[in-house]
Amino acid sequence: MSEALDPTPYDALLLLSFGGPEGPDDVVPFLENVTRGRGIPKERLKEVGQHYFLFGGVSPINDQNRTLLDALRKDFADHGLDLPVYWGNRNWAPYLTDTLRELVQDGRRRVLVLATSAYASYSGCRQYREDLAAALATLRDEGLAVPRVDKLRHYFNHPGFVRPMIDGVLKSLADLPEDVRDGAHLAFTTHSIPTAAADTSGPAETHGDGGAYVRQHLDVAALIADAVRAETGVDRPWQLVYQSRSGAPTSPGSSPTSATTWRSGTRPVPRPWSWSRSASCRTTWRSCTTSTPRPRRRPRSSACRCAARPPSAPTPGSPPPSANWSWSVPPPRAGAR
């Protein structure tokens, strides 16, 4: 074992995730948590819930987080890192507020937060920070000591996040028949969000159309495509496509969709596609700090300031950096851009 690592000033790591139902009876209550305050009829939630019922009412996210927790704890122990790991969710048990209360009762005062969301957007960054601030406010109202909470930065281009997707693409290509392998195109799929939400994920003048949400996905797709080209010697066409549309039916969402890409007749000869899911839960670097509770109110702009690329960050298509950077920003202010 290498020399023991010192986690100072942190005395705990909090894995913060979205949460999901773990049985049919959980589905509608879970969706009510997700959509609380939006006035969505229960009948509509039951309709949406059919997607979960197809899989027995169980989302895979909780078991994936349990696996990640076990891996983190083992990795910390293997490297002599004495840092307890806790788990809290925004929308299902174990709930964030309950977990933070447990942290405080265990004497934790400086907490590092790993959110299972790699990209910038209101729901992928700022809302996590708002939920952290709201949970801290609840603890303060209960008379408990409020710990300082530091949120890790977006990790979309971290080597530990990118490399498994490179390996997945290479394996998918190897599984294709040899006579079509070199002609295969690459499609990188991710969650569709309303275009209005994407546009406020980071300034368009810095990131282009679709804000930081689209730019970051294009960056990681380019990193994967470049690595696949380097390892196979084949320069393949690739495209970023979207799935799992969210938002109101009347609101335009990110496009093109994975379905339209699959059915596309724009090419005279249909070609095989290799698909890569641009989502996971891995990180190393710190970004945002939330130590003072703020009002839970959706700001005019949903851009999370930790979405801004620091000067040393990689440019699109460049290899991800091997060294860490670290910076902090204050919690979001209601109405702040």
Results as ranks from 00 to 15, higher is better:
residue 15 L to M: 15
residue 336 A to I: 03
residue 192 S to Y: 04
residue 245 R to F: 06
residue 277 R to A: 13
residue 25 D to W: 08
residue 75 D to A: 09
residue 317 G to T: 15
residue 29 P to V: 02
residue 311 P to H: 11
residue 64 Q to H: 07
residue 205 E to F: 08
residue 250 T to V: 13
residue 81 L to V: 12
residue 335 G to Q: 06
residue 121 S to A: 15
residue 261 T to K: 11
residue 215 R to V: 05
residue 300 R to I: 02
residue 332 P to H: 10
residue 38 R to F: 01
residue 317 G to W: 15
residue 136 L to I: 09
residue 218 L to Q: 13
residue 248 A to K: 08
residue 13 L to V: 12
residue 298 R to L: 08
residue 40 I to D: 01
residue 63 D to F: 13
residue 86 Y to Q: 01
residue 328 S to D: 11
residue 162 V to Y: 03
residue 202 G to Y: 02
residue 196 A to I: 02
residue 305 R to Y: 08
residue 215 R to T: 05
residue 50 Q to F: 02
residue 64 Q to A: 07
residue 251 S to I: 07
residue 211 G to E: 00
residue 296 R to H: 07
residue 218 L to W: 07
residue 195 T to M: 06
residue 223 L to Y: 00
residue 323 A to E: 15
residue 261 T to F: 14
residue 1 M to H: 12
residue 203 P to A: 04
residue 194 P to R: 00
residue 31 L to D: 10
residue 213 Y to C: 07
residue 312 S to V: 11
residue 84 P to V: 05
residue 184 A to R: 04
residue 161 F to N: 07
residue 103 L to E: 02
residue 49 G to W: 14
residue 304 C to W: 06
residue 149 V to Q: 06
residue 82 D to G: 05
residue 46 K to D: 09
residue 247 G to A: 05
residue 219 D to S: 09
residue 277 R to C: 04
residue 19 G to Y: 00
residue 172 S to E: 00
residue 241 V to P: 13
residue 49 G to Q: 13
residue 132 L to E: 03
residue 248 A to S: 11
residue 231 E to M: 08
residue 138 T to I: 09
residue 54 L to A: 11
residue 228 V to R: 01
residue 98 D to P: 03
residue 212 A to I: 03
